[in-house]
């Protein structure tokens, strides 16, 4: 089955064509670099940019794929969680196309799509597994019994890890998005230069918290006479170390508690090299198999949406033209 995937939940306009038999046929993303200026995603600007980007991206995708619109057999679109205005642009486009081509349309939960991005490398998800979903808007641990059965077993109490990266980046004047900026600065810093707090590690649950870290970094930065490049690198490295420490320890403890032998990363922060390296190493020590999406499929992308949609369409699902959007909701099971 050839499926078109549409992703507009935040600032990237991303489309892909995916075939259940052949894998990714083509994928294309338009990034909205304009947000760099604002240090974050501005909804008004994001929605308008999606409107401007969608049709040109779709035309180019079809041209590059070498297939015709009539060959699209189903359409999947992220309908939440995310920015409502941005989601509406993608969903409206998806509905128009589904109506014009007379094809089934399914709404895909953005987080389920991130989880299934792990299959874009060609291997099926190995379950039961614990998945750490970590991005600008989410930091959650899911137990995945099998594809389609999800249980939220841990969640951030306040800020998402990606949000902590963004805010710390802003405090250090490193730019947006914060994840890659902090990681780059950290590469020449000492991760043990400053002992930042690791929240919730002593708690007997799998919830996380990153709000206190942001405050600690702020207080530390303000106590310094000057921010030299070396100090910035050291603070970036130490803050990244604190974030990665908490994410890795919670994920591993969760995997052990749930007696699973597979852990997966998902979401934009899954592109962080330190997180990938550390989770991989710690998993290996306990004979747990570590998996992560290909780097290009960590950030928001249409390919993961198409891949997840194919699963739903295979079951004969069609949400039709009544499909709605939502801002926040955990992934729900469907099998």
């Amino acid at each position: 089955m050839v499926v078109l995937g549409i992703e507009t939940s935040c600032d990237d306009t991303s489309l892909a064509l995916f075939s259940s038999e052949r894998g990714i046929i083509a994928d294309l993303t338009a990034n909205q670099l304009i947000h760099e200026k604002y240090g974050g995603v501005v909804p008004e600007i994001a929605s308008r940019a999606h409107i401007r980007n969608l049709l040109p991206v779709f035309s180019r995708l079809m041209a590059e794929s070498g297939i015709t619109e009539r060959e699209i057999e189903g359409i999947g679109v992220s309908n939440g969680p995310g920015l409502i205005g941005s989601l509406l642009v993608g969903v409206s486009f998806a509905k128009a196309l589904a109506f014009a081509l007379d094809r089934p349309l399914v709404g895909v939960h953005h987080i389920e799509a991130h989880i299934l991005a792990n299959e874009l490398g060609g291997e099926s998800l190995e379950t039961p597994a614990i998945v750490l979903v970590v991005s600008g808007g989410h930091t959650s641990l899911y137990r995945v019994e099998t594809v389609g059965r999800y249980e939220l077993v841990g969640n951030t109490r306040d800020d998402a890890a990606g949000e902590a990266f963004d805010k710390i980046s802003k405090l250090l004047d490193l730019g947006f998005p914060g994840g890659p900026a902090v990681e780059k600065a950290a590469s020449s810093g000492n991760p043990h230069a400053v002992e930042f707090p690791r929240a919730m590690l002593k708690q007997n649950n799998f919830d996380l918290s990153f709000s206190g870290l942001k405050t600690a970094v702020r207080l530390y930065v303000e106590s310094l006479p000057a921010l030299t490049p070396q100090v910035v690198s050291d603070v970036a490295a130490s803050a990244q170390e604190a974030i990665v420490d908490v994410l890795v320890q919670k994920t591993i403890a969760c995997a052990v508690h749930h007696r699973v032998s597979h852990v997966y990363l998902a979401g934009g922060v899954a592109a962080n090299g330190e997180l990938r390296g550390r989770l991989s190493a710690e998993s290996e020590k306990l004979d747990i198999t570590y998996h992560a999406p290909l780097l290009r499929y960590c950030t928001d992308n249409g390919a993961m949406v198409a891949c997840a949609a194919a699963r739903h369409l295979d079951m004969g699902r069609d949400d039709g033209l009544d499909l709605d959007v939502f801002a926040r909701r955990p992934v729900t099971s469907w099998v």
Partner: peptide, 12 residues
């Protein structure tokens, strides 16, 4: 419900 940071989605 748990009240989380709405920085990302702006409105909850």
């Amino acid at each position: 419900e748990d009240v989380l940071s709405p920085t990302f989605i702006l409105y909850e």
